[in-house]
Design a protein around this nucleic acid. Structure first.
Lengths: 124, 124
DNA sequence: CCTCTGACTAGACGTTTGTCGAATCAGAGA
DNA sequence: TCTCTGATTCGACAAACGTCTAGTCAGAGG
């Protein structure tokens, strides 16, 4: 159990199925929660990664091959690979090698957590 | 109208009241949309700014004084000021000076857009 | 075994970021 | 007017980031 060493990890949050975090306008986020969720927002904070994320999340069958992602950008293969690693380490996607090809898949749990955090009550 | 010069700006998106963007798992985000929304995610991608954002969004009366934000962190005044400017330039908050004090207020519109983008349909 | 292809790692390089202390600006009040 | 306080801007610096090229790893198929 890694929960004892670090105060809180991404895996901990992923393990929780219920919404971990009330909306941001309900009360102040604890420092530990911020430390865990901020990297996920940061990972989405690059235009290339945001597009990659949407291509993965909207892919037919829920997954997409790297070989279909790379040619969609004017960037080198290693650069795309680097961005995919960033998304992976933020817990937003998972990778699965099948033969020569690697397929990426979105992790809906954490995305829902981020969405829940940003869902504010209408001021009207 | 500034819409003609640049392809798309934050203000343009703020002007739209209806949700600008279907969820990320519906279809691929266009490059222009990614370029506009990524900076907002990036601004939330720092633990300090994420906490600042939640303190502002959850503040009583919808606004909070910088003088109440600064002592909540182990950081210098200029550093907090810098983070607040980042949030401001990302369109996430607005500032209002009243006498000696400056009050910050959340902009719910863009937050709802980000939340809508991340709202994925349940796989179950 | 060799080779080919797709994806990743390693190392380098210029840019951006987060932080600070010092200086400056904006009002309030004597 | 002078001073005091709160907030921002400026300039500097180390750390992190985004990108590249070159090299490496993992399977598929002769």
């Amino acid at each position: 159990m890694s929960k004892q060493a670090g105060p809180l990890t991404l895996t901990d949050l992923n393990a929780v199925d219920a919404p971990c975090c009330p909306p941001i306008d309900r009360h102040r986020i604890p420092a530990e929660t911020a430390a865990v969720l901020a990297p996920a927002f940061k990972a989405l904070g690059d235009p290339v990664r945001l597009q990659l994320m949407s291509m993965i999340a909207s892919a037919d069958g829920g997954e997409i091959c790297v070989c279909d992602l790379t040619p969609a950008f004017d960037l080198s293969g290693p650069t795309i690979s680097h961005h995919l690693r960033t998304l992976r380490e933020a817990g937003l996607v998972s990778a699965d090698r099948r033969g020569t090809w690697v397929y990426y898949r979105a992790r809906p749990g954490i995305m829902r957590q981020l969405a829940a955090l940003l869902t504010v009550t209408d001021p009207a």
